[in-house]
Design a protein around this nucleic acid. Structure first.
Lengths: 194, 194
DNA sequence: TATGAGTGAGACAGGTCTGTATCATATAGG
DNA sequence: CCTATATGATACAGACCTGTCTCACTCATA
């Protein structure tokens, strides 16, 4: 009764194709027809796997968020100190900003295009942002008291979000340099030197 | 040969109505029909004043950017020290985040929906962001050497952009508290105590 | 009063959007 | 082989999109 062996593959393929188009052209600007043409898939195939375009968008965001989380976990291995982990995260973003197909943060774009807090797409985007912020806070909690950790985590989160906006505007290098410098100062004055 | 006395008023009225709808529902999700209905204006009136929907969007963004700049200039009067000016800007954003019709930053949303750097809407949005960053830098340049001023200005800019994203997600209070705290630390460690 | 610019209302064209329905085909497992 | 499932291709419905066009009307000014 499960799907055919390659049915799950088709599903992933649709998600990946939609991801690429949403990232490049935006959500509203990307039509279903464009997605199925690029994915070389029949329309009914897409609608059998996903309930609607919004449903597909949520799936794409969740899939992307999971990949983001995996990469983050790999970066911030247990071997490093909190400061090293934060530095690694900034380095990672620097590489991301420099990648040829960088078009800003898909989750920020989702918040922009689906600004209604009750919308499922908005919720999917906030989940990812909340996860990142929580992850930063967990890292900092290893060497800072809880209230300090929260404040610094929020500040680092804002620096990262702002850096991503700046990078989308073509100033990724300046953004990451200043963000790193600011993060160092914040961690230093918060007492998290290790 | 100039327009009738109230023609310019109609034009402003269309811009203000479009602004309200774009802010609430987004650019692609807001149709021309919706704008002219809400503005109680004929379609041809709108198309006589603006070349296209994109043209209207650019006009809306420029109008909003001008208003933003005016408010910023009023806030950061010459009487205050750089630190006081920065504090006033954060206070201002706090009030903005708390306002009942806050829906995030329209310029961020424009960058998200028109991600192509060559697009006129993208350019209009970047103009505003560049202006804000430059304004921060000018303020800091009063009490910091140029290279420090630039780094700190970019950091403050990113904090503000990130705080706006957080506020859109419903955490404006936490954002502004952490941003203020971070800004104080950055200004302190940069030596701009006045 | 006469003129002409600005306007409101609405039809219209041509295209695109999401989502559904239909039918032939391919294929894996019993 | 035979049946059930997944699929490709395509037509279709109904709505919405941007932008153009026409026509009657208002109203300030000459």
């Amino acid at each position: 009764m499960p799907l055919r062996p390659d049915a799950a593959e088709k599903r992933k393929h649709i998600v990946r194709t939609a991801y690429r188009l949403f990232k490049r052209d935006g959500f509203h600007a990307t039509g279903i027809d464009k997605i199925i043409t690029e994915a070389e898939v029949a329309k009914m195939t897409m609608y059998r796997h996903f309930p609607s375009k919004d449903g597909l968008i949520v799936e794409v965001l969740d899939w992307r968020a999971q990949r983001f989380k995996r990469q983050l976990n790999r970066l911030a291995g247990d071997a490093m100190t909190p400061s090293e982990k934060i530095a690694a995260i900034f380095d990672w973003h620097e590489r991301w900003f420099d990648s040829p197909d960088f078009h800003g943060c898909l989750f920020q774009h989702a918040l922009a295009e689906f600004g209604e807090p009750a919308h499922s797409v908005f919720e999917a985007a906030t989940r990812q942002k909340r996860d990142l912020q929580q992850r930063l806070q967990d890292i900092l909690a290893q060497s800072l008291p809880d209230d300090h950790a929260e404040h610094v985590a929020v500040a680092l989160f804002m620096l990262i979000e702002g850096a991503t906006v700046l990078a989308h505007m073509g100033h990724g290098k300046a953004a990451i340099v200043s963000a790193r410098s600011a993060a160092t100062k914040l961690l230093g004055s918060a007492g998290a030197l290790h």
